[in-house]
Design a protein around this nucleic acid. Structure first.
Length: 286
DNA sequence: ATGCCATACGTTGTATGA
């Protein structure tokens, strides 16, 4: 009799280019041995996704990218089925715009570079649960259309959950939310007054996700200050632990009840040419 | 020391990141 699919560890990592980081990601798979790895900022087109290197490591790879910016992926060694990208909205076709161009709709998508909608969401069933890998927009500054676009993107995420998912099911959503939910998640809250990542509307967007039926499954295991997932490359901020906790793993109640440990791997942020984010992971009871 | 920015695209620099 086959044992149930062994899903013990789920991780998320903003790799800041999967092409540039492939060796480090492969190395980390060998060290941390996650069963599922959610990735963000792969910065690859789908046809450039490193399917074979992941296969050699024992993982199937589902990738949703656009090329130069953004890009999200799921690697799994417990199966990948029922993949959904971009909330199932599919490619956006602007009516009346031919190959020769046409006016861009800045209000609808301020970051639209003409290469299609930004690749910021991919979801799949991996063994017994559905996972979602997300890369929320940065927002840049509060008085820009990019900030409004960030809030609209979170609304789209909430609406997708509300319309297509059931909080009673086994679900985990992880990634780079680009929001620090609490002042404890910022090295210097005073330095971030009036900035993105900490504004009440952004924090409300995360609260709406929790209200739908998701729980932060990392913070309960690490209530301490200074538990960050991102550090600016510049000014030795990593080495001074001047960072923010903006990567998160949120789980439905049934999954959250099975989480027995959570941590981030600061070692993966060390050394030459690291990502500016550390991987974050949870362990589930069998 | 964990050690003082990195990515892609492209060209002598620009956009982006958070």
């Amino acid at each position: 009799m086959a044992s149930p699919a062994g899903l013990r560890r789920i991780a998320t990592w903003n790799v800041n280019s999967l092409k540039a980081r492939l060796d480090r990601v492969e190395g980390w798979l060998g060290i941390a041995a996650p069963d599922v790895l959610l990735m963000q900022e792969t910065k690859l087109a789908d046809e450039m996704a490193p399917v074979m290197p992941f296969a050699m490591a024992g993982y199937e790879l589902a990738h949703h990218g656009q090329g130069r910016w953004n890009g999200v992926a799921i690697a799994s060694r417990v199966g990948i089925t029922d993949v959904v990208t971009n909330f199932g909205d599919g490619p956006v076709v602007t009516p009346g715009v031919g190959a020769g161009g046409g006016s861009r709709d800045e209000a609808a998508d301020p970051a639209d570079d003409g290469l299609g909608p930004e690749a910021r969401m991919i979801s799949a069933r991996c063994g017994p649960i559905r996972v979602v890998s997300i890369y929320a927009p940065n927002g840049r500054a509060l008085d820009t259309p990019f900030y409004a676009g960030k809030l609209a993107w979170f609304e789209r995420l909430s609406r997708w959950l509300e319309e297509t998912q059931d909080p009673a099911d086994d679900l985990l959503i992880g990634g780079d939310f680009n929001v620090a939910p609490d002042d404890l998640d910022v090295y210097d809250p005073g330095a971030y007054v009036g900035a993105t990542h900490v504004s009440p509307p952004e924090r409300d967007a995360l609260a709406r996700l929790r209200a739908w039926g998701l729980l932060d499954v990392v913070r309960p295991f690490h209530p301490e200050a200074g538990f960050y997932t991102w550090w600016d490359y510049r000014a030795g901020n990593f080495h001074k632990n001047l960072g923010m906790r903006i990567d998160h793993l949120y789980a439905s109640r049934s999954v959250a009840a099975r989480v027995v440990a959570a941590d981030r791997d600061r070692d993966a942020r060390k050394g030459k040419l690291p990502s500016d984010h550390a991987p974050l992971y949870v362990d589930l009871a069998s």
